[in-house]
Simulated assay, not measured.
Amino acid sequence: MTESKKKAVLKSRIEQVWEVVTDLSDCSWRSDLQRIDVLEPGKTFVEYTKEGFPTTFVITRFEPPYRYEFTMDNANMTGTWTGLFRRTDEGCEAEFTERVD
């Protein structure tokens, strides 16, 4: 298993960051994606890369605006992703952890 962590402090309110990250109807901020299809609202969605390669996601925790988790699965990997969001004096600290096999 490979684990990757990214952390950043954003000069935006936590609610704004949460909305952008969890809004499955608009992936324009994601340069790697062509589109997202929601299969079951609040539960399952599929992301398609610019090349059309699909990855299926199952939401396992959704605790606005602090915690977002899901499993991921495609032909090349399986894994989990966790997003943690914290209020800071500067705005919002976002920490993303991805674990992939």
Results as ranks from 00 to 15, higher is better:
Ser4Gly: 04
Lys5Trp: 02
Lys5Asn: 04
Lys6Pro: 00
Lys6Ile: 09
Lys6Ser: 07
Lys6Leu: 02
Lys7Cys: 15
Ala8Trp: 00
Leu10Gly: 14
Lys11Tyr: 12
Ser12Gln: 15
Arg13Val: 08
Ile14Ala: 14
Ile14Cys: 11
Glu15Tyr: 06
Glu15Val: 09
Glu15Leu: 09
Val17Cys: 06
Trp18Val: 01
Glu19Tyr: 02
Glu19Arg: 15
Val20Leu: 05
Val20Lys: 14
Val21Glu: 12
Val21Thr: 11
Thr22Asp: 01
Asp23Gly: 06
Asp23Val: 05
Leu24Met: 08
Leu24Tyr: 04
Ser25Lys: 08
Ser25Leu: 02
Asp26Lys: 04
Cys27Ala: 14
Cys27His: 13
Cys27Glu: 13
Ser28Gly: 13
Ser28Ala: 15
Trp29Val: 08
Trp29Ala: 09
Arg30Val: 08
Asp32Ser: 02
Asp32Lys: 13
Leu33Phe: 05
Leu33Asn: 12
Arg35His: 07
Arg35Glu: 12
Arg35Trp: 00
Ile36Tyr: 00
Val38Met: 10
Leu39Met: 04
Glu40Tyr: 07
Pro41Met: 12
Pro41Ile: 13
Gly42Lys: 09
Lys43Pro: 00
Thr44Pro: 02
Phe45Lys: 14
Phe45Ala: 04
Val46Tyr: 00
Tyr48Lys: 01
Tyr48Val: 05
Tyr48Thr: 06
Tyr48Asp: 06
Lys50Ala: 11
Gly52His: 07
Phe53Thr: 14
Pro54Gly: 07
Thr56Leu: 09
Ile59Gln: 08
Ile59Gly: 03
Thr60Asn: 12
Arg61Lys: 10
Arg61Asp: 05
Phe62Asp: 01
Phe62Gly: 07
Glu63Asn: 10
Pro64Val: 11
Tyr66Asp: 07
Tyr66Ser: 14
Arg67Leu: 10
Arg67His: 03
Tyr68Glu: 04
Glu69Val: 02
Glu69Ser: 03
Thr71Arg: 03
Thr71Phe: 03
Met72His: 13
Asp73Pro: 00
Asn74Tyr: 03
Asn74Ala: 09
Ala75Asp: 15
Ala75Thr: 12
Ala75Ile: 12
Asn76Arg: 14
Met77Phe: 10
Gly79His: 06
Thr80Asn: 15
Thr80Ile: 10
Trp81Phe: 04
Trp81Leu: 01
Gly83His: 04
Gly83Phe: 00
Leu84Phe: 08
Leu84Met: 14
Leu84Gln: 00
Phe85Lys: 06
Phe85Leu: 04
Arg86Gly: 12
Arg87Val: 09
Arg87Leu: 12
Asp89Met: 10
Asp89Arg: 15
Asp89His: 13
Gly91Trp: 02
